[in-house]
Design a protein around this nucleic acid. Structure first.
Lengths: 183, 183
DNA sequence: CCAACCATGTAAGCTGTTACATGATTGA
DNA sequence: TCAATCATGTAACAGCTTACATGGTTGG
């Protein structure tokens, strides 16, 4: 079993893919970017880095002050396996983290598969909610309960629309920027 | 300080407002309704109930088999304080839990205030994201990062639209079902 | 009698947080 | 020299989950 990695762990692996950094530099990224759902406090990042190091997914190289961490081959493997998996099960914020990291992977077909499975999942949720609201229980619910369900429905609809639009924009982008026919 | 209550605790208080129930009955509610974000396993509910009992927010009355829990006056106070607070800070799923429980509270002005503050918060998020995307950093970001931000934008837009629509529907409902002029 | 359900609980662990502690270096 | 920043870490806890344990009752 290839060493379990936590969501925060994947976030760190993803940030280390391109550029090796120190723990402090990683914290700064969490502070200053949209990764702010995670705390940038030392109590989060340093223990996570230690765990990744113990699992041999990252390696520490001491520098003048502190250490610089970089991905090991195993670490890159673990990250790629995570990025390549179908877009299901995980909460939306984690999926968006994956989507952002997919860019650096530079493999359009993987991003495409991600968006397609994401859209499929959203369509499934949407249809489930619609069926529920059209079935026996839905219409008999009081207004405010129906509205609470409608909240969920509007969210998945927005996510589906996002995925379809994102796919369209990326297809355009890919066909413009890499018009060669094959491998 | 009036005894801290966890999100799961509030969910239990809300369910017990109308109807006293046993721990097992509460678990069944979690299993069969849209409260499924919480686990219905005994390891979740029973310890939470014990905590609420120790805080004197609920009271247990033994029946033939097991116990039936009901809100104490303090428990009702704590629940009402939570329901009445402005719709900010908490994650969306918790806010929807509150919105659903607001129905049983039967105080339209509180539900109205909730939706208005919810919409205000959504508008604030939306404007923040739009400003970010129109500023220095936004346009310089690579396409896929911009799309990740667009995901967040579309979500808050959907939530804002939901709140505005919900308010409209409820105002209609209230004016039809309770057309008397005052207290 | 055995399976299924009612009913309650404990133990351990996961993931992440806040708060605290430490010390070195840099710049005003 | 004094504050700010770099850099790393520990301790305690929060909130919830899974897995396990236990026993009574009911129905076929």
């Amino acid at each position: 079993m290839p060493a379990k990695v936590t969501p925060l762990g994947y976030a760190l692996l993803g940030l280390l893919r391109g550029e090796p950094r120190s723990g402090y530099a990683l914290r700064k990224v969490f502070e200053t970017t949209l990764l702010g759902n995670y705390s940038s406090s030392p109590g989060s990042i340093y223990p996570a880095l230690k765990g990744l190091e113990k699992a041999e997914l990252i390696a520490a190289e001491p520098i003048a002050r502190g250490n610089v961490f970089s991905l090991t081959p195993m670490g890159r493997e673990a990250l790629d396996a995570w990025l390549t998996a179908p877009a299901q099960g995980e909460p939306a914020d984690i999926l968006m983290l994956r989507f952002a990291f997919l860019q650096e992977l530079g493999r359009p077909e993987v991003t495409r598969a991600f968006l397609i499975s994401f859209a499929d999942a959203a369509r499934g949720s949407r249809d489930g909610i619609r069926a529920f609201m059209a079935g026996d229980i839905g219409p008999s619910m009081p207004l405010q309960s129906r509205l609470a369900v409608d909240f969920g429905l509007r969210n998945v609809e927005a996510q589906l629309a996002w995925a379809e639009n994102a796919l369209k924009q990326l297809e355009d982008h890919w066909s413009q920027n890499a018009p060669q026919t094959g491998g």
